[in-house]
Design a protein around this nucleic acid. Structure first.
Lengths: 185, 185
DNA sequence: CGGATCTGGCTATTGGCATTAGCTTTAAAG
DNA sequence: CTTTAAAGCTAATGCCAATAGCCAGATCCG
């Protein structure tokens, strides 16, 4: 019986691949174990259980998106930066629809997810800085961005847009309607 | 062994109650059967299985929202009607968060759900009529409304908004940013 | 080098679930 | 009053998560 040489990170990696290939609902310890070449109970040596594995996947996904955010925002500012962030969000969701669906909607409420959530938040706050919004206005602005990005991405990745009209154009209009409400910086 | 006098509609009703009380993930044939006072296999006499039950719940929820829509839109027109529709959407999602989560995101793609989806669509199209948008512009406008309503409602009902700032104000801003992009009718 | 110990695997088991098969009784239809 | 279709039941199968307890590989310390 040779050792498989697993680790928590390796289990999470396998879980992400299972999600990518078979959808969020197919994330099962049995499927992950099979992919790792191991019996299902062995996973408990690295991961607390299915619930914990799901949170770890959530952390992983949140961090991946935060990475895309920082990459998109570097070297840009103002409306340019906001637009790039919105496109990075959509691009991630379309590139990995199932992974996107596994992203926890309320990261700041769970301690394990908060750090990853705050990484995203920091990038957005930096992009909004040129407008010098007061605290309240900033909260509303970030919420509106989040609503538009999440609403569009979740509908698109769930196949919710049926008609052939150009989706890029719809997204452009959404971003434009947001930027139009900001005072000229 | 007295008869329980079930029917497909009664089973769906029980399923909706289970969802309301214990969340979407708790929708299980065992739970529904218990609430109906019946053994689990008996449900198959009324419903094809768990998958079909979920579709039926989807139809039910789509129709409930369509009812709210028509009620909200009657007697209103223009920006007033749009605002009322958006508030009806949000009100339904906050009143029944779990039920909202059970609403299929792509009703027009599945024949069983299409009729209910089209009911909603018709109300929105009627509300947009005063602006006399051409076909393409109307598609983009409806998509944007849907994105904002669904994005906001899904985040709110999932507890995704952490801060104490007024959510009504955020929603107002979203609706306003939409209306501002329409030509004055 | 050699034993003690820890760690990462395993098998076996339990309990919950969906689903199918086949039986029985109720209730309606003739 | 008989016949029959529908609505319930129990029993059984198979998949899954989770726990318990065993065993071997790796590591650590003398």
């Amino acid at each position: 019986m040779p050792r498989a040489g697993l680790s928590a990170a390796a289990v999470v990696e396998a879980a992400v691949l299972v999600i990518d290939e078979q959808g969020t609902d197919a994330l099962t310890l049995a499927a992950v174990a099979q992919r790792c070449g191991v019996a299902a109970p062995s996973l408990y040596k690295h991961v607390g259980g299915l619930a914990e594995l799901k949170t770890l996947v959530g952390v992983r996904v949140l961090n991946e998106l935060a990475d895309r955010f920082t990459e998109a925002a570097t070297g840009r500012s103002g409306a340019d930066a906001i637009t790039a962030l919105m496109h990075a969000y959509r691009a991630y969701a379309t590139a990995h629809p199932a992974r996107y669906a596994a992203m926890p909607p309320d990261p700041l409420h769970q301690p394990e997810l908060a750090a990853a959530g705050l990484r995203q938040l920091a990038v957005i706050q930096a992009a909004l800085r040129p407008w010098q919004l007061d605290a309240t206005a900033q909260v509303h602005a970030i919420r509106r961005l989040r609503v538009m990005a999440h609403g569009f991405a979740s509908l698109e990745s769930a196949g919710g847009f049926g008609l052939p009209e150009d989706l890029d154009e719809t997204y452009r209009q959404l971003i434009g309607s947001f930027l139009d409400t900001l005072p000229t910086p």
